[in-house]
Simulated scan of single mutants.
Amino acid sequence: MRVLLVEDDRMIAQAIELALKDASYAVDCVSDGRAAEVSVRAQQYGLVLLDLGLPHLDGFEVLRNIRDSEVPTPVVIITARDALEDRIRGLDAGADDYVIKPFEMGELLARMRAVLRRNGGSGNPILTNGAIHLIPATREITFEGNTLRLSSREFSLMQSLLLRPGAILSRQDLEDRIYGWNEEVESNAVEYLIHSIRKKLGNQIIKNVRGLGWMVSKEK
């Protein structure tokens, strides 16, 4: 899944970016409010992590503009502003969660997973279509009685498919969800990942729709 990190403190941004990548997220980073708005309009993100004290545009204004534009992307505020008034203001403005710095990355990741589950209409910590079960917290997958831990890229691909069972995702759709701005993408990268997953768990786990892309079945 691709995440936009909006943070003007370079050291904090680097630490969060590294932790997110270790947790299998693709990450784009910007350091000011205007760049954040441009990024959200130009790219579809699974989630935005938004600091409040930003150059050019304050985080509250960025959030308000995102919601006024009816962009449904979940937004988690990450800030050192711990006043009750700020927390109320952020949540009322449309933030899905409000996390106060300093925080442990484990807590931030858990809050991100909870927000993504709520926005997907489920409180279940497991992504599933009925036949495939994916556990984001551990990157484990179960299919037809086999359970294993996926690599970072494999997990990102399966997560993208399982968030929308039955939907066909093209190569470009999957690349946009798996890779960040600064990551080089080889022409056959998606096919290689799918081949790797099928080799481990069987050809039926991911279905090819000729000329369109790939999907996982929407089980009843």
Score class of each variant (00 low, 15 high):
Q204L: 10
W214I: 10
I12D: 13
F103N: 11
E191W: 04
R67M: 08
R2Q: 03
C29I: 03
T128Y: 15
L63C: 04
V6C: 04
V40D: 09
G120W: 02
L148T: 07
L57A: 15
L174H: 12
F143K: 06
A114Q: 10
V190D: 02
I100D: 08
G121P: 01
T73A: 07
E219L: 07
Q204E: 05
D173Q: 00
F60W: 14
D28I: 05
R41H: 12
Q43T: 14
S196N: 02
V62W: 07
L5C: 01
D92S: 15
T138F: 01
E144G: 04
P102S: 11
D97I: 02
H133T: 12
L91P: 01
V76S: 04
S170D: 01
L63R: 03
S31C: 03
M112Q: 11
V27Q: 00
K220V: 03
A131P: 08
R89I: 08
A13Q: 02
A95N: 06
L193I: 09
S170E: 01
P165F: 07
V30R: 04
I206S: 05
L18P: 11
I77N: 05
R113S: 15
D58R: 01
H195K: 07
K218R: 14
A23M: 04
D8R: 01
I205N: 08
N203E: 08
S122Q: 12
L108I: 11
L5T: 03
D8I: 06
V76E: 01
D92P: 05
V71H: 15
S39I: 02
V38N: 11
D58V: 07
G46P: 09
D58E: 15
E140T: 13
K207M: 13
L134M: 02
A36R: 10
D68R: 15
T142C: 08
A35F: 10
S152K: 10
V40S: 09
V185K: 13
R164N: 06
G166D: 11
F155P: 06
I206K: 05
L47M: 11
R118P: 03
Q204M: 07
P125Y: 08
L50G: 05
A189E: 00
L18G: 12
V40K: 14
V30S: 03
V185G: 06
P72Q: 15
P55R: 00
S187V: 06
E37R: 09
A42E: 15
L57E: 15
L49T: 12
A189R: 07
L84N: 13
V99F: 11
I78D: 12
E183K: 03
P136Q: 04
R111T: 04
